[in-house]
Design a protein around this nucleic acid. Structure first.
Lengths: 146, 146
DNA sequence: CTTATTCGTTTACACTTGTAATCTAATCTC
DNA sequence: GAGATTAGATTACAAGTGTAAACGAATAAG
């Protein structure tokens, strides 16, 4: 079994990861060229970031002639998931709904996305509690204020 | 008009902010006592964090006798919002739906939360596009892979 | 072959974050 | 009033980040 030991990807590193995720397998050159436009980074910046991602085990490198091919050790899906779940841990459970509501408001969703979300929610409704319990540490949220 | 200049709250700092948000107005002593259980922090750690939050303008302090009263300069709602929107900026627009779906899956929602979300989504459905355009920088997502 | 280019590695440096110890001035306590 | 307690300010220090320059080895180019 793999124990992921919580790999943290910084914002700059995330840019690199997106390129890798999109390509499956890349050379540093490809990353540099891809980001040339979007980010105003020097080549060596990108090399540093790639190096750090390899250290962190977020990227795997295999020799390919005189250079390396990089590929992701962590899936985009998992990485996004753990990043986004993070927010739920930062608010009172009672506010989970509000967080999602804000996200729905700001996001761009297709008809199909929406339909699926509605189905998912209808399904979740079946076992939903009338009220969500606040599980905050005392004093860290105002639910308990009588 | 206020230009918020993007205040960033670190994870540790967030713990402090939650206490402040819950109380409106607190002394450092109250923060220390409140977090005593939850976090294994020394008093001076908390003082440092409070100090940094004041520097960052996330907290406001007003003299109160020989000490200070602290209160939040930024609302919890706004802070949560900007944190959660961040996630949308890290994935292809086409994946907004997937992010929300994951969040719905993981979150704890009341019947009312769910009903309201469904209403919100039904409303959003009216003007929803059939397909969400990918707006990623070329090479940073695989939507364009023919 | 010699030179220019390219790749990966090493080093750099300031800023942020987590986590405190210490110091100093004010203030309760006896 | 003298000592104990407290609040806030100053200093510390390692790890993580953003951003890169420089270096050395390999290789492509002429």
């Amino acid at each position: 079994m793999i124990i992921p030991t919580k790999i943290t990807i910084s914002e700059a590193e995330w840019e690199i990861m997106r390129v890798v995720w999109a390509h499956q397998t890349v050379t540093s050159r490809e990353v540099i060229d891809t980001l040339d436009n979007k980010m105003n980074w020097k080549q060596s910046t990108i090399k540093t970031l790639i190096g750090r991602l390899v250290e962190k085990k977020a990227l795997k490198k295999e020799k390919y002639g005189r250079k390396f091919l990089y590929s992701a050790n962590i899936s985009e899906n998992e990485t996004v998931r753990s990043f986004s779940e993070d927010i739920l841990g930062r608010v009172c459970q009672k506010d989970n709904g509000r967080v999602i509501q804000q996200l729905v408001e700001k996001s761009v969703l297709s008809q199909e996305d929406i339909e699926q979300l509605i189905i998912q929610l209808q399904d979740k409704l079946i076992n939903a509690p009338v009220e969500v319990p606040c599980e905050c540490a005392p004093g860290q949220c105002d639910c308990h204020v009588a």
